[in-house]
Design a protein around this nucleic acid. Structure first.
Lengths: 207, 207
DNA sequence: GACGGGCGTGGACAGTGTACACATCCGCTC
DNA sequence: GAGCGGATGTGTACACTGTCCACGCCCGTC
């Protein structure tokens, strides 16, 4: 309904603020999303933001949402590159692609990555595997979709699925966090990529 | 050398500030460690902190260090409860204990947990398995020690050790982060504990 | 007993998030 | 078409933060 809200005086200030926020997050993570700076970049007074966001946290949440969409897009690109192959093999390749894409995004856009996952997300939203359409997906929805394929093909017993989902998710996310802002920070990026691939392989074996 | 620095006017202000910082971190994570509030609690003027820390980040780093020690203590407690058993079984039980202890600390002290791992750590320090003595260990050093046992007993081939270490670490840390400040935030604690155990089991299987 | 240097104080400044009161302009109703 | 109401943006203000600077104090040392 009325997606044509649009422009009043400024022309969709909300979107402009989110975009400024993304630029800030890109170079400094969630803490760099400074409300006043975002309004400055949008060419507007600080308080104007309060017509569109309850407070700074609300703005950051919106930026986080957009970042999740960007991450999902990166993963979808990786998925699209998976060659077709007979059933199970392909499903496993797709699972691998999700992990690799996730880590690739973390490496290429550390600021956005940290912002995307520094905020509690609506679980129903994040988990739902459908929600297609560009920019609409979330990384966890994509993982769920791939796991659906695996269970459907019988490669993953249904009763083990929940734990498998947690493991896959935890392993990849944990590795990314350790490298980005944890004790492993500063690990050489190529090295990190290589180790990341091994973590993905082992997680798949664990599943 | 000269650990007897101690007291000038205040009686080891540095330590007092770290303790105030820990209290703050406990209830609000790293962002809650605000320098002025710490000095306030220590009954001292804001600038006094600058005689002991270069800046706020330096104070947070010190608090993070202490938090890591507390985490290590929690894990050691868990390790101490592992019953003796024949070689390999015991080693595996110890591995499990490290994972459980790590997650337990994350659940019981979320603020300290996040503070402990929100800061880049000196890798050499964090990794070294020796560094015994109460308050001196780190969670990752303890994990390394247990893995040493596993390789020594032949249960874990030496060449697979590095990746195994990464997987164990990533899975457990990742799960904790997802629950504490990621999309899984708000998951029921008991539920989280149960799922956490399964993640630990699967990670062990993956190793 | 003087004194120099570690330790803490006081005051100040820029920058932040946010509340309150006000100005402006669009779209709707008559 | 006139006019009004409510959404949108502005200005001012306040409390709070991290950090800089100049100063005062008190201890151990010569």
């Amino acid at each position: 309904m009325s997606a044509e809200r649009a422009t009043y005086r400024h022309g969709d200030l909300r979107q402009a603020l989110v975009e400024a926020g993304i630029a800030l997050a890109r170079e400094g993570g969630p803490d760099a999303v400074v409300l006043r700076e975002a309004t400055r970049r949008a060419g507007v007074s600080p308080n104007a933001a309060y017509r569109h966001f309850a407070d700074r946290a609300d703005l950051v949440a919106a930026v986080s949402d957009s970042s999740q969409s960007l991450a999902a897009a990166a993963i979808e690109a990786e998925l699209a590159a998976v060659p077709s192959a007979p059933g199970i093999e392909r499903a496993e390749a797709r699972l691998r692609a999700v992990g690799i894409g996730y880590l690739r995004f973390a490496r290429d856009e550390p600021g956005l990555f940290r912002t995307a996952f520094s905020v509690p997300t609506d679980l129903d939203r994040a988990f739902s595997p459908e929600r297609s359409g560009p920019g609409g997906g979330t990384p966890f929805g994509l993982l769920a979709g791939v796991l659906d394929e695996l269970t459907a093909s019988g490669a993953l017993p249904a009763e083990r699925r929940p734990a498998a989902e947690m493991l896959a998710w935890s392993a990849v996310h944990g590795f990314a966090m350790l490298v980005l802002e944890g004790p492993l920070r500063g690990l050489d990026p190529d090295m990190a990529t290589a180790v990341g691939r091994r973590v993905v392989e082992m997680a798949i074996r664990g599943i």
